[in-house]
Write a protein that binds this DNA or RNA. Sequence first.
DNA 1: ACAATCATACCGACCGGTCGGTATGATAGA
DNA 2: TCTATCATACCGACCGGTCGGTATGATTGT
Lengths: 203, 203
Amino acid sequence: MPKQARSEATYHALLDAAEQVFAAQGYAAASVAAICRAAGVSKGAFYHHFPSKQAIFLALLQRWLQRLEGQLRHQRRAHPDIAAALLAMSTQVQQVRREGRRHWALWLDFWRYAARDPAVWAATVSPYRRFEQMFAEWLAEAQRQGALPDEDPHTAGRVLLALAMGVLVQGMLLPDDADWGQVAYRGVLTLLRGWGFTPPTTA
Amino acid sequence: MPKQARSEATYHALLDAAEQVFAAQGYAAASVAAICRAAGVSKGAFYHHFPSKQAIFLALLQRWLQRLEGQLRHQRRAHPDIAAALLAMSTQVQQVRREGRRHWALWLDFWRYAARDPAVWAATVSPYRRFEQMFAEWLAEAQRQGALPDEDPHTAGRVLLALAMGVLVQGMLLPDDADWGQVAYRGVLTLLRGWGFTPPTTA
DNA sequence: ACAATCATACCGACCGGTCGGTATGATAGA
DNA sequence: TCTATCATACCGACCGGTCGGTATGATTGT
C-alpha cells in the first residue's frame, strides 16, 4: 500500500514504536503523541497511516499473532514426534523474563480489550481458533497412533493452551519466583503422561 | 471505621458500583463520575471514603481475593481426598459464563495493572503467593501418601494454577466454544493421572 | 504540476481530584 | 427533654491538564 520507500519506513517505525509504548504503558495510558515521539514522526504522519489509535493496536495484534503462528508451525515441522514438538514449544515459554516481561504484558492487554471491544475480539478470536484447531489436529494424529484413549482432541488441545497461557501470566507477574520454563516443561510432560504418551526421546 | 450507619451503606454501594463499572468498562475507561452515578452518590462522597480511584480498585481486589481464598479453603475442607478436592475446584470454573464473563474480565484487569503498577502488583502478588503455598502444601501431603514421584510440589502447584488461569481466560473470551468446566475437569484429571494419583472416587 | 507524505497548530471533550459549603446525626449540658 | 455544639458525611461546581482527532499548509518524489 505504500507508494514511496520513505512511507514504508515510517509505517514500520510507527508499528515498532507503538509496540514499545503500548507494552510499557498499556493501551489506554499510551498516548498517540508518545508513539509519534518514539517513532520520531509527527502526529500528521500517524493519522496518515492509521485511521485511529485502535487501528494501530489491531495491526500490532495481527503482526504478533502471525509471528506466533509461524514459530509454532516451525517447531512442529522440526519435530516429527508430536510429544517432542509440544515439549520443545513448552521450553519457549522461558522467554518470559526481564526484557520479555513488558512485551508479554502487551499480550495481556490484547486479551483484556478482546473481552470488551468487539473489533479487538474478532481480531483475536479467529487466529486463536486456528491455534486451537492446529493443536487439535496434532493430537488427533497422535490419537490415531495410540495415545489419548477416551479423550477428545479438542478438549486436550484447549488444556494445553490453557497451561501455556497460565504459565505466561504467572511468569509475567513473578519472573523470579520460579523457573517458568521448567514449570511449563513439567506441566506438558505430566499431561502427556496422563494421556498415555510413551516417554519421549529426550527426558 | 464508619461512625454512622449511612456511611457504611454508601461505602458498600460505592464498592459494588465500582465492581460493576470496572467490570463493564475496564479500569482506565471507567470514570469516577460513572461509579458515583451507579452508586447513586455524589463525587464528594466518593472522595470522602476513598482517597483515589486506585484506592477503590485495590479495595475491590482485596475483597475479591479474600472471597476466592475462602471458597478454595471451603472446598478443601469438604473433601478429605486431595484429588477429589482439586477436581471439585475445577468444576467451579464453569461459572465463567454469561453473567460471570464481565465479572471475570475485571480479574484480567487486575492482572494487567499488576504487571505495571507497583501498588497493584504488591496487592496482587502476596495473596497469590498464599494460593501457591496452599496448593504446594496440599500436594506435598499427597506426596507423603505416595503420589507425585519425582515432582516438586511447588512446581506441580504452579502447573495447577496455570491450568486454572488459562481455562478462565479462554472461557472468558469464548464462552460458547466449549464446555469449559469440562475442559478444566479433564485437564486436572489428566494431570492427576500423570502424577500417579489413583483414580479418585468419582469419575 | 500534482499527488503522496508529513509537520504544526489547534479543537472539543473528558477526567481525576479539589474545595467551599451544607445536611445529618451524635453528644452533652441544663 | 430540649437545645447548643460539633464532628462526620455528603454535595456539586470547578480547575488544571491530557488526549484523540482534525484542519491546513509545507515538502517531497515523480
